[in-house]
Amino acid sequence: MTMQLKPGTRLYSAVCETELMTIRAPADPIAVTIGGVDPVLDAGERPGAGEVVEGHGGGSAMGKRYVDDAGTLELLCTKAGEGAPAVDGVLLGTKDAKALPASD
């Protein structure tokens, strides 16, 4: 299933604890999954059953930025889980933000 994302759209995994925040999104709808399964847009819609699909179990890590190759999509993980985010079945890579000393 494709969905239209925009900055601020929250994604909740249907099969694990993962929660993602959309930082940057392409103009058109995309087929995003977490743990290989379509995510839901509201925590209350989580089915409460289901499993991470094989090959999508790499997990998500708090604070990591997940990006596509085109650089049009960026999802920030706000809650870690067992499932990994993907678009069109392809696992997303991570972008390493440069660590800066805390100035405030």
């Binding site: 900055p7 601020g8 929660e19 925040m21 930082i23 708090m62 920030l76 706000t78 809650k79």
Partner: peptide, 14 residues
């Protein structure tokens, strides 16, 4: 992004 999204992130992450 909007600061309301920052609040969403704080609620989710912490």
């Amino acid at each position: 992004m909007h600061l309301a999204s920052l609040l969403d992130m704080v609620e989710s992450g912490f």
